[in-house]
Structure formats: structure tokens, C-alpha cells
Amino acid sequence: MADYALMNQKLFEGDDATVRQLTEEALAEGRQAMEVLEEGLIAGMRVVGEDFKYNRIFVPEVLLAARAMKAGMAVLQPLLTASAADTSAGTIVMGTVKGDLHDIGKNLVGMMAEGAGFKVVDLGTNTSDDDFIAAVREHGADILGMSALLTTTMVYMKTVVDAMTAADLSHVSICIGGAPISQDFADEIGAHGYAADAGSAVQLFKRLVGDRVRA
């Protein structure tokens, strides 16, 4: 019997070797890759996200859990890809804005989003509006995510929002985050969403993609 509760627990503990092993075992006993992904990995990451949001755990624990999730994902990936079914929850292009080299929070959001089944295209730090737009077009992104730590670089997000509109990409949802960012700032620059932490960001992505499907 695949023990998903144990898998969730080992993922939470950041035990990547055991998560990999449990993933392999679940597949060996005939479980579907999609089921293992949902119940073994994504369900575990959901708890990690919640606990992070409520300050029960901190960045180190989240990073180790995300790494354990990746270990399980590496086992599942070939099967998920081969099954040809569209398993992706959506595509997110993300990066830290121009002039800003901080990426810890952005990486955390990327890992959590991958953990929730999104395809994440990470453009790294110091990303210009042109680079964001080119990647959004190339990957047919559903969501553009931008991060900034500095109060001086966060205003560049407005430049990107305007450039996205000018480039006829206003159908792509723009989400922003970072220590100095607030919902007020998101509203002011015309971004579609803001989240205060990585777990909330994933909930936001899901909601925005859901809205797009319904629209």
C-alpha cells in the first residue's frame, strides 16, 4: 500500500532520499503517476505552504521540503510527460525585476508553484520588461510573476505592467510580491494579484488560472 501520509511527512521533513524511494515504490505497486504527484507530493507541499504562512516553519524548512519534492518529481516527470495528458496547472514566467538581484523569495515561490503542478519559467534576477515579454510570448504564459526586495526597484513593476499592455498581453495575469510590496501597490500599478508569502502566492496562481478557464 502506498502510504501517502508517510510520503507527506517525509516531504515535510525534507528527507529527499526517502521521498524518492517512496515515489518509486508507489509506482512499482502500480499507482498512477498523477495520483502520486497529487496525493504524495502536492498534498505535502500544501501543508508546508500553510505552516510557512503561519510562521510555524521558516525559509530553511521550506527549501528542504521543496528539494524533497523535486526528488520525487524527478521520478514522476518522465511518466507524466509520456502520458501526454496536460498535467500542468498552468505556465508561469517569473523573475526579479531590473536593478534587483535578490532572489530568495522568488525562488521559494517558484519551487512552491512547481510543487503545485505549475510549469515555471524562471528568468532569474535583474529582468527587463523586454525579457519578461519575450518569455511570456515564447512560453504562452498564463501568469507573469515579478519580485522585488528593494523599494527603489519595485517601481519598475509598473514599467513592466505598462509594457505588457502595450504589447497586447493584458490577458496574461500579472502577480507581484516581495518584502516592500503590498496589495495597495499592486492595485496602484494595475497588477492582477499580490501575495504576502509563497504559499499564498500558489493559491493566488490557482485562483487566477481558474478564473481564466471559466472566463
Binding site: 504562512k53 510562521n55 516553519i57 521558516f58 525559509v59 530553511p60 524548512e61 530568495i104
Partner: peptide
């Protein structure tokens, strides 16, 4: 400052 508005921790906890 943490979510409860009382406790303080660094980013790394």
C-alpha cells in the same frame, strides 16, 4: 514581525 503581530524572527527563523 510575524503574522501574529507579536513574535519576531529573522527570515530564517
Amino acid at each position: 514581525v510575524m503574522r501574529d503581530g507579536v513574535e519576531v524572527r529573522t527570515m530564517m527563523g
